[in-house]
Nucleic acid binder design. Structure first.
Length: 993
DNA sequence: CTTCTCCTGCTTTTT
DNA sequence: GCAGGAGAAG
């Protein structure tokens, strides 16, 4: 059999091998979408004879495209992979515009305006026009117009009163961009569309186009896809309407429909089996998403066991919520006997701003974490300043960058001078840079004479920039960004400047500068040949614009910075267990973790108070929930001083979790980690089950083996009631167990031995329920039932089904049930689908409850059979189970065996696992090993990919790691001092060190 | 005229 | 903490 198809289920295979020219693969979370898309690329290359450089593959995030490259490296080999035109829409467009932009009058060396630039430009314009429109609002509305392909002229026809003002700003904004030779994010797409419309020959080589996460495309991106595929009209898309969470960015789910209409030969393949999460998590997520009544019903079949119920936890306030997460992380690690590591946990947030409290709680508790999402690193002032210098060097027309550095470090150039210069430049009709140069070289004069000091400062600046530019000319290779950065840092005495300006944390800021330099040297590392990612195949009759290699390296570096989402990573090798990921939900899309926390599930946070479309917020929650493999925790603080609606700061649970769902799908406290629960987690993660000894060994480090510091109603349990000493610092696990704690040790041993007994006897009905006074018998009892029962049934139904339907636009195309499932009348197909669903999860919940209540009055635990000494017994951590069982069709593991023998990858199949734990674990050894230097591999082979930028990866190879490695933490530490000062007032009594 | 300091309001999500 | 504005001090 074809090795590309190895490990694919029937439906996935159907999708991969489909001979349909236009194919839509629609699939719920965890069903192996990306895997399918990747395999299809490989299949098309090998079976249809397409050349890689004739295949375009679009993703939405850099992370996704990097992951795709990695997977493809393994499937088709590094060499072929690197020739594919693969990247985000934006980066692919940039590539085309660099080479062919001249055809539509784009000036050479254009820069990319990031959202700061955009905002600065708009602020200026709005001020000048004396408009009252909010800058951010204008930014959003203009972006929206661009995403719909509407120019100011298009808009001026529609004479809506409130639009007139905006249109004026819009066109002034476009002029400003043009004057500075800048393209904003939307322009990259729009201009590329222009290019391909006027010069379709630029993509005449393209055989086929593939698009990931198609539900997130907006009109322009959809148009681009069509233009890319214009010649042969062969397109594959994968997507899931339920995961459409970019409506705010003008994504249109309608594009799925539009595409079917446009291409009457569209085939649709549905994937329905979920390989990621345990059944209980899927059920709860499914219940959430099904509240959307406008949504066509869709199947989602669990292939895993039911597992343990998700948790919905109430806590008194956000600080308690953060502390609770710390406790639960520690508790679940300790009670699962090395099954879970720090890197198995993720905290997913609606808003990045929610992270601060969590970060500080984690910091205090010594839990390593990394924050993903947001572009914090490149937004740091010191980093931004240096980047702006580079931008000015690369691109002298970039007036905003110039304005940002004109007086940094201080050069005695103040407001008045700046006013003179910008005013003068505008009058003279030249860019700021040209004007400044003219002034100090005596060719022009400002209206009012400049101060001597200011003039001297300007001279120094111009001198530096010109010298840098000369250096750039002399540097004809990819080291340019690094060389320039060093030169500028030295010329400015930047370190001393930092020292003077930020005496408190000069250290951290200098570390950031070093980090930036490290990232810049990335480009050098991947040298040798020019970066293959940037090449486009030569096409006869169309000339590509040639560029100076140093200049190109610099502008590519700057573009990568502008287009990078996840700027930062952190040390992964801190004792080998990695760190907890804190991420926005948006940034977490497409990823998975064994344990997921979703805090702040209150009305106002999710759905966000500013959200325009509630359904999208629900989908967001759905996406977040479906990231979890084995354990899912939702939580909400009952009081939220600032945001929530109530005057007293009290919050209400998100409407997406009505009582009905909470009751049937959630428990109110963290699970008890008795043996069966732990086994369930191990099985879902396909890791080895821990031994009884391992389960016991860390108990002593816990303040309690139960989630009982707060009641299930979210009230603080009084200290004397429960052995909870609230003064104690939870970060300090070396603390001696309190006298009260011994009680839990006993219970735990009892619990374990009981479970062992029942396991041996092979029946589930002999469970003892270890209860404590403070835990509701109801939840724990239900817990016991929940882990046990339906394994066998779900196993039987786990065979995947494929439905392949060919639509015909002429027949209205939608007469088939499965299609209408997605696009047509939801009412009809819905009930039908329902009945065909495996009935185990929802149908059983009532009987659970009944059983649960009947189980309730269980006796207290039996005496222990495990020797007391076992509790402190320490075992060597065992390696995690290396591979997924064969029945698992998902997981990139399966690509291993067909990796091209030319690649060194083929030698180490063990490297490829889909769980983040393995990713991290393996990538460590990979990146450190000698002889690991497949030339182009730096950007793609290392499976670090999950959390780092391309640039970060290289940093790891760099020998200078020590200084920069702990950056992420250090940076966060800087913040703690301040935060803690503030939190002291309303805080929890947690001590700071 | 520049620079420093204090104050205010802010924060949805991303390329 | 962070950006931007206002006002006082150099």
């Amino acid at each position: 059999m074809d090795p590309i198809l190895d490990g694919l289920n029937h439906a996935q295979r159907e999708a991969v091998t489909s001979s349909a020219p236009v194919l839509q693969v629609l699939a719920p979370p965890g069903s192996g979408k990306t895997k399918t898309l990747t395999a299809r690329v490989a299949y098309l290359l090998s079976h249809h004879g397409y050349q890689p450089q004739d295949v375009i593959c679009c993703t939405f995030t850099i992370k996704a495209s990097r992951e795709m490259r990695e997977r493809l490296s393994k499937l088709i080999g590094e060499k072929l992979q690197s020739r594919l035109i693969l990247g985000t829409f934006h980066s692919i467009c940039r590539r085309y515009l660099v080479k062919y932009g001249y055809l539509i009058g784009l000036r050479k060396g254009f820069g990319i305006a990031d959202s700061d630039d955009t905002r600065a430009i708009l602020r200026r314009i709005i001020k000048r026009l004396k408009s009252t429109i909010d800058v951010r609002a204008a930014q959003g509305r203009i972006s929206k117009h661009k995403a719909h392909g509407l120019s100011p002229r298009d808009l001026s026809d529609k004479v809506k009163a409130d639009e007139v003002e905006l249109v004026e700003i819009y066109s002034a904004y476009n002029e400003a961009l043009a004057a500075a030779n800048l393209l904003d994010y939307d322009d990259l797409l729009v201009r590329c569309c222009d290019l391909l419309r006027e010069h379709p020959e630029c993509v005449s080589n393209v055989q086929t186009v593939l698009v990931d996460e198609f539900q997130d495309t907006n009109i322009i991106q959809y148009e681009l896809m069509n233009l890319f595929a214009a010649k042969h009209r062969r397109i594959t898309i994968v997507g899931d309407p339920d995961q459409s969470i970019y409506g705010f960015r003008s994504a249109e789910i309608q594009n799925l429909r539009r595409m079917q209409k446009k291409y009457s030969n569209t085939s649709v393949v549905l994937l329905e089996s979920n390989y990621r999460s345990c059944g209980s998590i899927l059920n709860s997520a499914q219940d959430v998403i099904e509240q959307d009544t406008t949504r066509p019903a869709k199947k989602l079949e669990a292939t895993h066991k039911f597992g343990t119920l998700p948790v919905l936890r109430k806590l008194p306030n956000p600080n308690a919520e953060a502390t609770w997460m710390v406790l639960e992380i520690k508790r679940s690690i300790a009670l699962t006997g090395d099954l879970l590591r720090m890197c198995d946990f993720a905290v997913l947030l609606r808003s990045a701003s929610l992270s601060t409290r969590i970060e500080s709680a984690f910091g205090r508790a010594g839990i390593p974490y990394k924050m993903v999402g947001g572009r914090k690193f490149f937004d740091r002032v010191e980093v931004k300043t240096l980047l702006n210098y580079l931008r000015v060097v690369s691109h002298s027309d970039h007036s905003d960058a110039l304005l940002n550095i004109i007086n940094v470090p201080p050069r005695r150039i103040g407001d008045e001078t700046i006013k003179q210069l910008t005013g003068g430049a505008e009058k003279a009709g030249v860019t700021l840079w040209v004007f400044i140069k003219d002034v100090i070289q005596g060719r022009r004069a400002t209206e009012k004479k400049l101060q001597k000091a200011a003039e001297l400062g300007l001279c120094a600046l111009v001198k530096l920039i010109d010298a840098s530019r000369q250096k750039l000319q002399d540097c004809a290779d990819a080291s340019a960004p690094c060389v320039l950065l060093e030169y500028i840092v030295e010329s400015l005495s930047f370190q001393e400047y930092l020292l003077k300006t930020y005496p408190l944390d000069e250290d951290g800021r200098w570390a950031n500068v070093k980090e930036l330099m490290g990232q810049a040297s990335d480009v050098v590392t991947s040298d040798g040949e020019t970066n293959p990612e940037e090449d486009l195949p030569e096409i006869e009759g169309v000339e590509q614009q040639q560029t100076h290699p140093g200049e190109e390296a610099l502008s590519r570096f700057l573009a990568n910075v502008a287009l990078a989402t996840e700027a930062q990573s952190k040390d992964e090798d801190d004792g080998g267990s990695g760190s907890v990921t804190i991420s926005t939900i948006h940034a977490a899309k497409g990823l998975e973790w064994p344990v997921v926390f979703i805090p702040a599930v209150y009305n106002g946070s999710i759905p966000h108070s500013r959200a325009e479309v509630v359904d999208e917020e629900r989908r967001l929650l759905y996406v977040a929930m479906t990231r979890a493999q084995a354990l899912l925790y939702l939580s909400l603080p009952l009081k939220q001083p600032r945001v929530g609606e109530g005057e007293d700061g009290s919050t209400s649970l998100t409407p997406f979790l009505p009582p009905r769902i909470v009751k049937s799908r959630f428990r109110l406290k963290g699970p008890q980690f008795h043996e069966q629960v732990v086994y369930g987690i191990a099985d879902t993660l396909r890791r080895a089950r821990p031994t009884a000894e391992e389960l016991c060994k860390d108990i002593a480090t816990l303040p309690s083996i139960l989630d009982d510091r707060w009641t299930s109603e979210g009230e603080e349990v009084r200290a004397e009631d429960n052995g909870w000493n609230h003064q104690q610092n939870w970060g300090d696990s070396t603390q001696e167990p309190s006298t009260k704690r011994r009680r839990y040790d006993d219970e735990r041993r009892a619990l374990t031995s009981n479970s062992i007994t029942s396991h041996k006897s092979g029946t589930s009905s002999t469970f003892m329920v270890p209860t404590t006074m403070s835990t509701g018998g109801f939840t724990s009892a239900r817990d016991y039932i929940a882990v046990q029962p339906e394994d066998s049934k779900s196993g039987a139904s786990s065979q995947a089904k494929a439905q392949v339907i060919t639509t015909s636009a002429h027949q209205d195309g939608l007469n088939q049930a499965s299609i209408s499932t997605f696009f047509g009348n939801p009412g009809v197909s819905r009930t039908k689908d329902r009945s065909s669903q495996p009935n185990f999860p929802s149908a059983k919940s009532t009987s659970h409850d009944r059983l649960a209540s009947s189980t309730k009055p269980q006796p207290q635990s039996a005496p222990s059979h495990v020797p007391v000494s076992l509790a402190s017994h320490r075992l060597q951590p065992r390696p995690l189970h290396p591979s997924r069982p064969a029945l698992e069709p998902a997981g990139p593991t399966s690509y291993t065996w067909m990796a091209a023998p030319t690649s060194s990858d083929a030698l180490k199949p063990a490297r490829m696992f889909s769980s983040p734990a393995f990713q991290n674990q393996m990538s460590e050894s990979t990146s450190k090993g000698p002889g690991e230097t497949t030339p182009a591999s730096s950007s793609s082979v290392r499976s670090k990919a999950f959390y780092t930028t391309t640039m970060d990866q290289v940093r790891q190879q760099a020998p200078t790691t020590t200084g920069r490695r702990t950056l992420g933490i250090r940076r966060s530490m800087n913040g703690w001092a301040d935060r803690m000062k503030r939190e002291k007032t309303g805080g929890q009594g947690d001590r700071m060190q």
